[in-house]
């Protein structure tokens, strides 16, 4: 498989980049790390006329902190996030998720957090070579009317497999996007469309510039199940955040004021599970049964979005593992924090 022909552009600042996007729009794709984009191009899933490389762009690589927020530039390398004490201390789930992205080489060499969030949805039936796909009718995501993941499905059942997005949604993150002459900020949860074909809304001339994580006094954790220790997408993942009600009270005696439970790699986007999250409000941090119940609610709610689209495991197994991942994430979030307090 070879890359289709394209024109290569390399703007040296954000302004120029936005100008280019304003001109080329749909004909252009942005190349940050390329670990997702180039594979898709080789498979003929994308055929941009222009590839705009961010290689020379210095402006979008940073991790900053003020009283309210952590701000991460979209081009920040995964390895820099793993190495950041700010992230480790204030957004632990993201630190964990980044450790799981790709492999050490991808984390260090090229992979960016923006790229991780903006990766397109996957499905084993869709992410095949052009030749493979040409031997059958086109699926929804490929412009057709068939779904190979679920028989007779009237829409696309591809899944979002981003580790970073699942953790960030648990941390209630926001995204900043920019286009020529205009900026907007949107909750990560609102970024998604629940459509597998176009899983999130970013306009053709728009670019993700920044990830904003509100600093809340709470504990977070990211847990994922995968076949191997590197280069695997998760079979299922869970990101959780728990905010205690009382200040200066040890967790084991504290009450949950606010919970955010997010399940990833199952649905078209990371799934924020409001009923399961709400259930934990007012429960004690040491209430294991409440954690179990919340995990069960999470499993029931998230399972409805799951389809058999990764090949190596069945739908049943993936669904049953939702409970495990959520429960383990909740339990370990508390345990880790208790250990840290000691």
């Amino acid at each position: 498989m070879r890359l289709p022909r394209f024109e290569y552009l390399k703007p040296e600042n954000l302004n120029k980049l936005l100008q280019m996007l304003a001109i080329y729009k749909n004909d252009a794709k942005i190349l940050a790390g390329g670990t997702d984009l180039l594979v898709r191009m080789k498979k003929g899933l994308l055929k941009p006329k222009f590839v705009i490389s961010l290689k020379d762009l210095k402006e979008l690589s940073y991790i900053k902190q003020n009283n309210e927020n952590i701000k991460i530039g979209a081009k920040t390398c995964i390895a820099d996030i793993i190495d950041s004490n700010i992230i480790k201390n204030k957004a632990y789930a993201l630190f964990q998720a980044c450790q799981k992205i790709g492999a050490a080489t991808i984390q260090h060499y090229k992979g960016t957090i923006g790229g991780n969030i903006l990766q397109d949805n996957r499905c084993i039936h869709y992410n095949q070579s052009a030749f493979h796909r040409s031997g059958r009718g086109a699926c929804h995501k490929d412009g057709g009317k068939i779904c190979y993941a679920r028989d007779d499905a009237d829409r696309c059942f591809s899944t979002c497999q981003s580790d970073g997005a699942t953790a960030l949604m648990a941390l209630d993150a926001k995204l900043s996007l920019a286009k020529k002459g205009k900026k907007r900020t949107i909750n990560l949860a609102d970024f998604y469309t629940s459509d597998g074909i176009i899983p999130f809304i970013i306009e053709p001339d728009e670019i993700l510039t920044e990830i904003i994580i509100p600093i809340k006094d709470g504990v977070s954790f990211y847990k994922r199940l995968s076949c191997r220790s590197s280069i695997d997408y998760p079979i299922v993942s869970a990101g959780v955040f728990l905010k205690p009600l009382q200040k200066n009270v040890p967790l084991e005696k504290n009450t949950i004021d606010n919970a955010r439970i997010v399940v990833g790699a199952i649905g078209r986007s990371p799934l924020f599970l409001s009923s399961a999250s709400l259930f934990l409000k007012g429960k004690k941090f040491n209430d294991i049964n409440a954690f179990k119940k919340a995990s069960n609610i999470a499993m029931d709610n998230a399972s409805t979005f799951a389809v058999h689209n990764i090949g190596s495991t069945t739908l049943e197994y993936r669904c049953s593992m939702i409970f495990q991942m959520v429960f383990q994430a909740l339990e370990q979030a508390v345990n880790l924090n208790q250990e840290n307090q000691k």
Binding site: A103, I124, Q128, R228, S229, S230, I231, D232, G311
Partner: peptide, 13 residues
């Protein structure tokens, strides 16, 4: 699963 992403060969890790 005609690639190393989906064919689960052990990685160095």
């Amino acid at each position: 699963n005609a690639d190393f992403r989906d064919y689960k060969l052990f990685t160095a890790k």
